[in-house]
Design a binder for these strands. Structure first.
Lengths: 123, 123
DNA sequence: TTGACATATTCCCATATGAGCATATTATTC
DNA sequence: GAATAATATGCTCATATGGGAATATGTCAA
């Protein structure tokens, strides 16, 4: 069996860096013409159209016609499965951050104690 | 150009459903032999070895020898880039949840008012 | 109608799959 | 050392790329 199609699911669709770039351009949630994406990312127009096509098939973006323009809009809700999935593993690095914070607070307390002591010594 | 290699980055590595399944088996953070994964997921052993190889190249898992066993352990920190990326778009559905909560609270308030009223009527 | 402009589509190509199967490698035990 | 167990590796195959270039489609404007 070959690799799953990029249009199979969101995970495959976002595996492509350029598609993530395109998504980033649409992050404001507003409508953007293909040409905007092209000039912003400086990618060949056919490439952008193709990538947008993949994103559309998966539902990450939606299109609407405005004259001769095709306006693409981000439908970020489709990214939720990715978020839900990766959130399961969040604790693995969040705990680490907590420990760092803890150590920092301990140092802060120690420093405050020291400063408190020298203040008393000044009295 | 063909599609990027699955060993290129984490995004490509986790695009494969079976690899996500394997990651799920290793979620407890403890060491697991290949055979455990094989029997848990009921996948062919060569397939599991190959997928573990991909995950290892990307750094998502680490290996250590224990006799004739190869113990694989999840290195979930490598998934952080995915989390960081998708978190940028979290607000798109979180806001929706907030709205749902808001509506629920409004209904609750209305209900309380009604009950309050009927209580007064009982007086 | 004829252009000019914005996008989409088609073709070709090099390449990286992932599955299935057979086989090699390594370690253990008798 | 031989047999066995646990993994890894090598092979072929069908298939889905993504890029580039050319071209088709669709739309507006004069």
């Amino acid at each position: 069996m070959p690799r799953a199609a990029t249009t199979t699911d969101v995970f495959n669709a976002i595996a492509e860096p350029r598609r993530r770039q395109i998504i980033a351009v649409l992050v404001d949630g507003k409508e953007h013409a293909v040409g905007e994406v092209v000039s912003t990312l400086r990618l060949p127009q056919p490439a952008v159209s193709k990538h947008l096509g993949v994103l559309r098939k998966v539902g990450i973006v939606s299109v609407s016609k405005r004259g001769q323009l095709r306006m693409y809009r981000l439908n970020a809700k489709e990214l939720k499965p990715v978020h839900d999935w990766v959130k399961t593993y969040e604790r693995f690095w969040t705990h680490q951050i907590d420990k760092v914070k803890e150590r920092a607070e301990q140092k802060m307390m120690q420093r405050m104690e020291r400063e408190n002591q020298s203040t008393r010594e000044e009295e």
